[in-house]
Design a protein around this nucleic acid. Structure first.
Lengths: 209, 209, 209, 209
DNA sequence: TATGAATGAGGTTTCATTCAT
DNA sequence: AATGAATGAAACCTCATTCAT
């Protein structure tokens, strides 16, 4: 097994100014990643975009990977925050509202920075990848799984694990694709309504709710 | 607009031996891409894996990108062939069979070489990407769209374009994810059954079929 | 038209040390060009001769051609400086002195670094070539042309343009050849005297001066 | 000293067809050298231009240099032929006619293939260079030198060697430059007249001839 | 004799990273 | 803390040349 390289920030910025520098560097990283693509995102270009010297960049990040990892942490933290709100709402909500809440939350989460999300998903090395980005999917899977178990009596599919897998995959893919390719569909609630019906009819027995 | 670099093969192999060499190089490209990842897939490594000299590689491919493009053409051609079979089956099939056929075909298409498919999807430059890989999705979208229009009277969703988008995205994402992450689910027909029901209930009014 | 590659220096050195490095690299370029010839003057060899790493060389020059172009700019600037001095001397000088001044200036200009001059003249791509090196000849042509017009009444040839062409070509070729092949002839003033008479008798009607 | 590589043709073509092949290859070499420049004149490109395979080219020429050398031999042979005619004419001609003949011959010689001449002069390695191309200048120098000695009593310059150097350099440079840059001047005899007077007045004491 | 596939040394160039200032 | 000059391994790619067919 290859030796893992350090990915943690090199030094904790304590001063106000230093914290701002880190912020500027990460913002520049995101911008360059999205605008120029992963291959063109060299450390020198990022430093230039941030308006700091390459030396300064290496004061805070020991290598290029650590930059991307730090950025992905920030990004997934934001997505997670939105999904966490959902957990609370979901707990005891009736099926249709729960489904809607899941989809809404997924839309919001993917709307944080869809282009950056795409680049990060595609280019983070697998290890780091699972560690952070896939957490979003993984967390969603667990939430859904628990919900299904709690409402087992109303659920059509027998295999709850497979059902959770299908639901999460479907919701994630459709919201992600919509955000990336069909932003026009997000202007009103039609798309959310449709996905809701797609999932709801699959999961739940007919119900007057 | 940035100048596009050439991606077309440099010289058509005329001798038998040369055709074999091209084949060996592309097979090595696929292997290295999958096993080592895009960034580690250097032309020298590919040439070594193919057992030819670096010069031989450049006899047939003008640059690294052209290698990947040629490989993606082969790959998408194979996927397309499987999807094309579907068109015929779909034409006049009743809803449930048509849905099943779509999902089966998608599963088969993604099963061609899922790991390679993932690398190609993630790393092909956008322009080339849309030209070939996305063709698969695009073609599927059109097939489904036509089918929905032909059976409009039985379809629940009003917006057929959105419906086609949701169905294709869902089927593609779930089959792709299953192939990549949950190959255990593909051993029997359970997953296909589930996806079929997911899509069928969404699209079609209840029917004794 | 083929796309021109960049030839301008990549980064303006701001620190003292960097300016010295650029200087060292250009000096090494000249040395290697002269001693080894154009084809053997690889960037690696130049970097080695300069005692810097290949990466340092590419910090300041985006490609090999830009190195040669920068060097030719330096070289022609020096030659031009010497010719510019001539303009002043020539203005109102009587024929014989003017002729002598022209030849002297040409000798001095070609003596700057004759071996380098030869390599540059022979290998610079045409576009760049005309832009800089040929400027020397072009400038000389215009100076002579103006002088001839100003003294038309004493000039034998009718076609002043052709006369200027002949004079400049002759003076340039003879001084250049002398500097390159017959440096012994430059030890005293004999050669300059001879060229002076060659040109003077051709241009001017007999005169007691 | 570096070991000299063979430059002689590898095998004397004996059959009719083989002789034609050699001819085609050399013509292609000249064409590519002139149209594409020395650097772009690769052996593969030359073979392609000649319509033969690279292997065939190497049947007749052991390496690239030998190609260029063979071409330069052909070229200088043609130029020499034109100059040789001059020798006879010159022998006992009176000064003005002799001068004119020299200049005419030089014009003719440089008109053989001026663009090719330029490429060859600039790129042939020095050793080969002096051996063949400079022979033209050298031969001209000797002819002129002999003529001057034979007519010493009418010659103004004392140093006949220097005079011959000046005359040959001047005539060569002006005819060469005219052929390359000012072909319009060659349409009538004006230029030849002017060069003739330039040289004649320099060399010879006034004479009623 | 002719072919063209194959070779690989060696060229140009990039970019993550270090370190003296 | 910040700078930016310097590094060099390693990437991409070319082209003179060989050799099996």
């Amino acid at each position: 097994m290859a030796a893992r390289r350090p990915v943690d920030p090199r030094r904790k910025p304590v001063q106000q100014r230093a914290q701002e520098t880190v912020d500027v560097i990460l913002k520049a990283t995101a911008q360059v990643l999205v605008k120029e693509g992963y291959d063109k995102a060299t450390t020198n270009r990022i430093a230039a975009a941030a308006g700091v010297s390459i030396g300064t960049l290496y004061q805070y990040f020991p290598n290029k990977e650590s930059l991307v990892v730090a950025l992905s942490r920030r990004h997934t933290d934001e997505m997670m925050k939105l999904l966490s709100g959902m957990i609370v709402d979901l707990r005891d909500a009736p099926p249709r509202q729960a489904t809607r809440a899941l989809i809404k939350a997924m839309c919001d989460a993917h709307a944080v920075d869809p282009a950056l999300h795409k680049v990060l998903v595609e280019h983070l090395p697998q290890a780091t990848f699972f560690e952070r980005i896939h957490d979003v999917g993984h967390k969603a899977h667990q939430i859904v799984r628990h919900y299904l178990e709690a409402h087992r009596e109303r659920i059509i599919p027998q295999d709850l694990d497979m059902a959770a897998f299908l639901v999460v995959t479907t919701v994630e893919a459709t919201t992600h694709a919509a955000v990336l390719q069909r932003q026009d569909m997000l202007l009103n609630d039609d798309l959310v309504d449709q996905i809701t019906r797609l999932v709801h009819q699959y999961l739940f027995v007919a119900d007057p709710s």
